[in-house]
Design a protein around this nucleic acid. Structure first.
Length: 923
RNA sequence: GCCGAAGUGGCGGAAUUGGUAGACGCGCACGACUCAAAAUCGUGUUCCUUCGGGAGUGUGGGUUCGAUUCCCACCUUCGGUACCA
């Protein structure tokens, strides 16, 4: 082979690795283990995009490096195969999502192998495989069979709970359970019917049914993901969406709130990531206070972290979806309140929280009594209060809370200052703590002291209690969808849910005629013919969410073919937690919390032996896509060009970047792409239809994906690998571009050139290397090894370039140097390294070579060139031997003529000599 | 809005603990080789400049002999915001 040809080399070595299963990892207690995990990809129809490999290449470099360092490396890959896009495709085409998914997985695997990633494919899992989801269902069942004992801070079997009930009732049980669970005695428990007992236990189980809000789209007859809703309309078709309560399975993740928070301390994660999870869990200390409603037999309880400001309450607010709103509205306000509630209930929480400037609310006509002042204050309903946080009722203190202040000012409600120093302020909320004023018995106390005094008073008078509140909510686990794991539950006539026995799992997904809800509004599984447990009892019709299968896949990788357990004790003891997990921050509050929750739960119940799944987590940045959008009129079947969008009331919709050229839309292709728009009208701009441009996450739903296929074809996998690493630090996000790819291509050719002459003859010699050559090599060994430990791969690539440039300049073709360089390079560019390694005469793969040891002797320096600064500005440079002491250096520097010129002969005020760094002369 | 991150030449980025800002690469310009082109190699390339020098790491302040790095305020972009995965 005369020149470097990736098309010959790369398939050859990929085939070799596959056939010899060189990446196979087996439990081997004699060897140290290292578990490197990649984010579980969803096999989208658009194929693997260039953003995926960024993390995958990085983790692959670490995996290969650790193998060379003598570790037993587990580096698996699999597919998060249930999900919305395959189902959407099924709805449109009638094709079973399993078929689409299988095709997509096949494509992904080819692409992954084409990049030369060192996965042990024997460990592959797919969440949609019944052999896999059998165990997802099994975990669901264990959660159902468990309750959370707060005294012991761990999950236990429900049997231990019923034993307590039988013995002493539930009064002293400290459990994670539903709000408002009634108190009962042992006798009352024993007297309950079996059905009543089961109903009661549902309040304690770690998974339980409840009613939760969903995005219901009547026109499409289906529930939409938040992702599919934009400004209250469906992204697909632009139909109105309303919020509706539906019965759903929930996961009691709140039981684990404290442990999920506390365990963060022992994890090697970025502070940013820990902070995001901490804030999401949102633990806050405060109290509940009870406010009686005037002339009604109702008490409203609010949660507050600032009970010290209770004397400043001038009104109360209740969330529009609060169940008591109707009852609390006086007849004269009925119409107004009902209208407001209806409007507010169709706004998403995010909208309600982000539009602080649009203040809205309605007076209910009712008054509540402040238990501390006996004062009557008006009760308002306003959408800045969310039903899901705290109690859905807020005591409004406009003088210390920003939103209360804006609201009060807008509606002309009174503002009473309760903190000294705010009396004269236009906006008193700028000072939130201090000595209390206008506050009865807490006057002149400091805020912190007053908080405790109010809580104490409230508890003594039975009008409140100290309370720890969490922002995190129990997770909705049901999806009104087809393409997900069936929930292994059936119902008896009394409506009680029962588990399908473990030995009958999995409950397989039945065939349906269409992937849409039924006429009666049941999920798609309601279409399955005669789908009943034992032919008699109806099954649960919702399916599990995407995060179910991905919350434990890292455990299954350890032992994927086990039919007796989700993972064997031997495997999980050996592989333990993940040593390095590389993935994006977009999973911070979803996948990475749910996985920790399930892992902690499985640990509690003794199925695994480590509580936290991911010891070290590194956040990879995102390769962003460049999206194009079109603007559709809200109420018409008409689109307008980007430049005209401000003149109309429009919604922005994503359009496939493949049918847009230079931001101009190919209208014919667009009509074909979305048949529902075949007869739409288009308002042009100078004869063309311009699209909007966005830089954002690469994702199929945004139609902006770019695959690595073309690049691999043209430049090769080694080139792609090094180029993606060369782009910058892996934790930074940036839009995809291929501007610098030629630089890496030149590097690979130069590397090849160290081993060959122009005619392609192999020219490596056995001559001993010179000191200079050793120095170049060892500088590289040190730098690259440090970089891999710090996951700073972009600088490694630079270092390799410098090394090869230097060796070329030195005309070095020596085995002693090149052999070691290849091992160091092989994690980055494995194919070319294998090829040259075998040309050097090795019969065993470079994967089994051991990493060269860095020798500091080779890079010793005996002098340093000091930058000489005068008043912080660089003026000259002088070389000094490292043995010279700072006093001598100072003296010589002051003698220097350049320095004398800049000091203008004046004596220096100060001379700073930092050994091995810098000299600064201050005048 | 709230939570988190980022911002350095024409472009991607480097600068390990507060110590030479712009490594490495792309692009561009010029040169060599060539009938020519490609490829390759070499030189230069932050900006301004009266050629002495001056300015400069999103903006405005601060700490320091010295700040891309630490502190305060702000701007812009990206990720998440509970049914995308």
């Amino acid at each position: 082979m005369a020149t470097y040809n990736h098309k010959e080399i790369e398939p050859k070595w990929q085939k070799y690795w596959d056939e010899h299963q060189v990446f196979r990892a087996e439990v081997d207690p004699q060897k140290p283990k290292f578990y490197v995990l990649d984010m579980f990809p969803y096999p989208s129809g658009a194929g693997l995009h260039v953003g995926h490999p960024l993390g995958y290449i990085a983790s692959d470099i670490v995996s290969r490096f650790k193998r060379n360092k003598g570790y037993n490396v587990l580096h698996p890959m699999g597919f998060d195969a249930f999900g919305l896009p395959a189902e959407q495709y099924a709805i449109q085409t009638g094709q079973h999502p399993a078929i689409t998914t299988e095709q997509n997985i096949k494509r992904y695997k080819e692409q992954l192998k084409g990049i030369g990633l060192s996965y042990d494919w024997d460990k592959e899992v797919q969440t949609c495989d019944p052999k896999y989801y059998k165990w997802t269902q099994w975990i669901f069942e264990q959660l159902f069979k468990s309750w959370y004992n707060r005294d012991k801070q761990q999950a236990e079997p429900v049997e231990t709970l019923t034993a307590i009930f039988k013995k002493e009732g539930n009064a002293d049980v400290n459990a994670a359970c539903d709000e408002g669970t009634p108190v009962f005695t042992a006798e009352e428990w024993k007297a309950m019917s079996e059905a009543d007992k089961q109903q009661m236990l549902l309040k304690y189980r770690l998974t339980y049914p409840a009613y939760a809000l969903v995005n219901w789209c009547p026109a499409l007859g289906t529930v939409l993901a938040n992702d599919e809703v934009k400004d209250g309309f469906s992204e697909r078709g632009g139909h109105p969406v309303e919020r509706k309560k539906m019965r759903q399975w929930m996961m009691r993740i709140t039981a684990y709130a404290d442990r999920l928070l506390d365990n963060l301390q022992k994890l090697d994660w970025s502070e940013a990531m820990k902070e995001m999870q901490t804030n999401w869990i949102g633990k806050s200390y405060g109290c509940e206070l009870d406010f009686k409603v005037d002339s009604k037999d109702i008490t409203l309880t609010c949660f507050t972290t600032r009970p010290d400001t209770v004397f400043g309450v001038t009104y109360m607010v209740i969330a529009p979806e609060h169940e008591l709103v109707r009852e609390l509205t006086t007849p004269d306000k009925k119409e107004e309140v009902e209208q407001y509630v209806k409007k507010a209930s169709n706004r998403s929480e995010r909208e309600r929280m982000s539009e602080v400037k649009a203040i809205s609310g309605v007076f209910t006509g009712s008054y509540v009594i402040n238990p501390f002042t006996d004062e009557k204050v008006p009760l308002w309903v306003a959408d800045y209060v969310l039903a899901g946080y705290g109690t859905g009722v807020v005591m409004a203190v406009p003088s210390s809370d920003d939103r209360d202040f804006r609201f009060a000012r807008y509606y002309g409600l009174p503002i009473r200052r309760v903190i000294a120093g705010t009396e004269e302020l236009e906006d008193p909320t700028v000072k939130k703590h201090g000595k209390m004023i206008n506050s009865g018995f807490i006057n002149s106390m400091e805020s912190e002291e007053a908080v405790q005094a109010v809580i104490k008073y409230a508890e003594e008078h039975g009008i409140g209690r100290a309370k720890v509140n969490y922002k995190i909510r129990d997770a909705v686990f049901s999806r009104q969808r087809y393409w997900g794991e069936p929930v292994p539950v059936y119902y008896t006539d009394d409506g009680i849910p029962h588990l399908v026995p473990e030995d009958e799992l999995p409950v397989e997904l039945p065939p349906v005629d269409e992937y849409l809800p039924t006429e009666t509004g049941d999920p798609p599984l309601g279409r399955a013919k005669d789908w009943k447990y034992k032919g008699k009892y109806p099954y649960e019709l919702t399916t599990m969410p995407g995060w179910a299968g991905s919350s434990w896949y890292f455990l299954r990788y350890m032992d994927p073919h086990n039919e007796k357990a989700l993972v064997s004790a031997e495997a999980v003891k050996y592989w333990n937690s993940v040593d390095l997990y590389i993935g994006g921050t977009e999973h911070a509050t979803g996948h990475l919390l749910y996985s920790r929750f399930w892992n902690n739960f499985l640990y509690d119940r003794g199925y695994i032996f480590h509580d936290e799944p991911f010891q070290k987590l590194v956040n990879q940045g995102m390769i962003q896509g460049r999206s194009n959008t079109v603007y559709k009129l809200k109420d018409e079947h008409k689109f307008v060009s980007a430049g005209l969008k401000d003149q109309y009331d429009v919604i922005e919709l994503h359009v496939d970047v493949n049918i847009v050229h230079n931001d101009k839309l190919d209208i014919e292709a667009f009509k074909k792409w979305r048949p529902e728009y075949a007869d739409a009208e288009f308002v042009m701009e100078n004869g063309e239809f311009k699209c909007g441009v966005l830089v954002e996450k690469m994702s199929k739903s945004k139609y902006n994906t770019v695959t690595p296929d073309a690049m691999i074809e043209k430049y090769g996998a080694d080139n792609l690998r090094m180029y993606e690493m060369f782009l910058g630090p892996i934790e930074l996000s940036k839009p995809w571009n291929t501007h610098g790819i030629d630089g890496v291509a030149k590097f690979l050719r130069k590397l090849w050139g160290l081993f060959h002459d122009e005619k392609g003859n192999f020219i490596v010699t056995d001559e001993p290397a010179r000191a200079e050559e050793h120095k170049v090599l060892h500088k590289t060994i040190r730098k690259v090894e440090q970089d891999i430990e710090n996951l700073s791969f972009n600088t490694s690539v630079s270092e390799f370039m410098i090394c090869v440039n230097e060796l070329s300049r030195l005309g070095c073709h020596k085995r002693e140097i090149l052999e070691k360089l290849l091992i160091v390079l092989s994690p980055f560019a494995p194919h070319i390294s294998e090829e040259l390694w075998s040309k050097l005469g090795h019969e065993k793969s470079i994967i089994f070579a051991s990493y060269p040891e860095f020798n500091p002797e080779y890079i010793k320096e005996d002098e340093h060139e000091y930058p000489i600064m005068v008043n912080g500005k660089l003026r000259t440079k002088i070389k000094f031997p490292l043995t010279k002491n700072p006093k001598e250096i100072e003296a010589e520097v002051l003698e220097n003529e350049v320095v004398r010129k800049w000091t203008d002969g004046k004596p220096p005020k100060k001379v700073i000599v930092v050994p091995k760094k810098i000299v600064n002369v201050v005048v």
